[in-house]
């Protein structure tokens, strides 16, 4: 049973071949991690899945249907959190959550969705303040709550805990785990410890390609390493580079 299939996807920007034949699949109710160094093609892959970019070739299927063929039909099933997601600065935190919740009115009462978002943020009374006065951490909590409050079938989270302190990051990880009761999560992160503890399966990306994929246990055993960080270093340093790079 597969929720999302990424099959031999390429992405070319003018003279840059950013993604080279990436393939993986995400199963229902699992947390799938996409890790790799800067410039590995993680964000481009996530953007293609989120329908912001069209693959130059290859196909992305959601529940068996090509997402590029009907992006409008696919978007209600996903929630995308960009790495540097911002918020409309003239709105209060609560108004922002209400604004987003109204897009999902055909699924659930917007007030119920927004109330869930309010609870997820943990910002309390500060939600009545304008976002322009929020710290980076507060803004991040707000946008994570925005992404998860709609209970998407597939949450696409790019570096969800970046900029958060340890306690807030732990709370966010808990929210991500809870999200699997309603759907799956695809997350990208540089924090391999976070990925190891959070993800059911992990794909390593390097130079635009997936160089290995499996559960954390499988990956550790396959490469004879104790942690995913060691596996990562081993893969990068020991020549597991995709062809042509």
């Amino acid at each position: 049973m597969t929720l999302l299939q990424v099959l031999d996807v390429h992405k070319v920007f003018h003279k840059t071949h950013a993604v080279r034949g990436v393939s993986f699949e995400i199963r229902p109710h699992e947390i799938f991690g996409l890790v790799g160094p800067n410039g590995a093609g993680k964000t481009t892959t996530l953007r293609m899945i989120a329908t912001l970019l069209r693959p130059s070739s290859g196909v992305i299927r959601f529940e068996g249907r090509d997402t590029a063929a009907d992006p409008d039909g696919f978007r209600p099933h996903i929630s995308y959190l960009p790495e540097d997601a911002g918020v409309y600065k003239n709105l209060t935190g609560r108004q922002y959550l209400d604004f987003i919740a109204r897009f999902f009115a055909d699924r659930e009462e917007p007030a119920v969705i927004a109330a869930r978002g309010v609870e997820m943020t943990g910002l309390g009374e500060r939600l009545s303040n304008r976002v322009s006065g929020y710290s980076k951490g507060m803004t991040r909590k707000l946008v994570i709550a925005r992404a998860l409050m709609v209970r998407p079938q597939l949450a696409i989270l790019d570096e969800p805990t970046s900029g958060l302190d340890v306690i807030s990051a732990m709370a966010v990880r808990e929210r991500i785990r809870e999200a699997t009761s309603h759907g799956s999560v695809l997350l990208s992160s540089h924090n391999l410890l976070e990925v190891e503890t959070l993800c059911d399966r992990v794909a390593f990306m390097f130079a635009g390609a997936v160089i290995d994929c499996g559960t954390p246990v499988e990956l550790r055993e396959r490469h004879g390493k104790r942690t995913l960080e060691e596996v990562f270093l081993h893969l990068i340093r020991d020549g597991h580079r995709p062809e042509g790079r």
Partner: peptide, 15 residues
């Protein structure tokens, strides 16, 4: 500038 465009473009609303 506010990095809200990507979020807006992935919401369930037609272009």
């Amino acid at each position: 500038e506010n990095k809200t465009l990507e979020t807006l473009l992935t919401l369930p609303v037609s272009r």
